[in-house]
Amino acid sequence: MAILVDKQSPVIVQGITGKQGGFHAKLMMEYGTNVVGGVTPGRGGEWFEGKPVFDTVSKAVEATGATHSLIAVPAAFAAEAIYEAVDGGIKLIVCLTEHIPVSEMMKAVAYVKLKGARLIGPNCPGVMTPGQAKIGIIPGMIGMPGHIGVVSKSGTLTYEVGFALSRRGMGQTTFVGIGGDPVIGTTFIDVLQMFENDPDTSSVVLLGEIGGRAEIDAAEYIKNHMTKPVAAFIAGRSAPPGRRMGHAGAIVEGSEGSAEEKIAALEAAGVRVAANPEQIPDLLAS
C-alpha cells in the first residue's frame, strides 16, 4: 500500500503536447505510471506516445476513466487548468506550475475544497510511490520501495534526502512534494495524517523551510495525533529576514516563519530535527 498514487491510478497529463508535459509524461510512463491520455485544447484526436490526446478534461475522463491529473502548463493558464480538472471529475490534481499569482491560488484552492477534490501543489515536484508510479518530476532513481513516508516543501532537497535514504537501503512508501508557494492545496498536516493511517508507512520524514507557520501547525498535529516517529530538516537557518528565498513562500515576515521557531516547535513535539539533511538516515536508524 501507499498513499495518493499507485500503479493502478489512471493519470492524464494536462499539457501533454507541451515541452514540459510531454517530457515528463514519457518519464512517468517509463517509470510504470498508468498514463491513460492527455489534454491539449485543439489537439483532440492526436496521439502522444501511444496515448490518446483530448481537447478537454471531461472528454478525457469520459473516455479513459482517469482519476488523477498532472498539470504542466504555464502560470497564466494553470489556475484555469485546475478548475477544468475539478469540473471534469478528477480526484487528485498535481500542479507543477511555478509563479501562479497568489490571488488565483486562493480562489482555486477554495474551489477544489468546495468540490471535494484534492490538489497537490502548485510549484511542487509531485508525488511518487517508489516501484509503482509517479505523477510529476521526481526522478525515479532517488527512491526505492520501503516504509518511510517523505513529505516536503522543496524539490531537489527531497531528492537529496531520498537519495541518501535509498543509498542506505532505507526505502520509502511515498514521496509527496507539497510545494513552496504561500497558498497550496495539500498541507503537511494532510499528508502526515495519510502516512499515520497508512499501515505500510512506519516512519516519516518532514522537510520544511522558512516562511509561514505550516511546520508549527504540523508540530502541533504530530504532538497530538501521531504515533509514528518523525524526523525533520528545516531549510533556511542562514536566511536573512524579509527576503524571499527563491520559493514564493520562503520568507521570514516580522517574527513569524523563522527556522529557529519551527525547529523548536518540532523538537518540542518529539520530532528529531537534523542540522544537516545528510544526517536524516542516521536519525531514523537510531
Partner: peptide
C-alpha cells in the same frame, strides 16, 4: 545550487 530548498540548505 539547483532548486530553492537545496540552495537554502547549502547556505545553511
Amino acid at each position: 545550487v539547483n532548486g530553492a530548498g537545496l540552495a537554502m540548505t547549502t547556505m545553511d
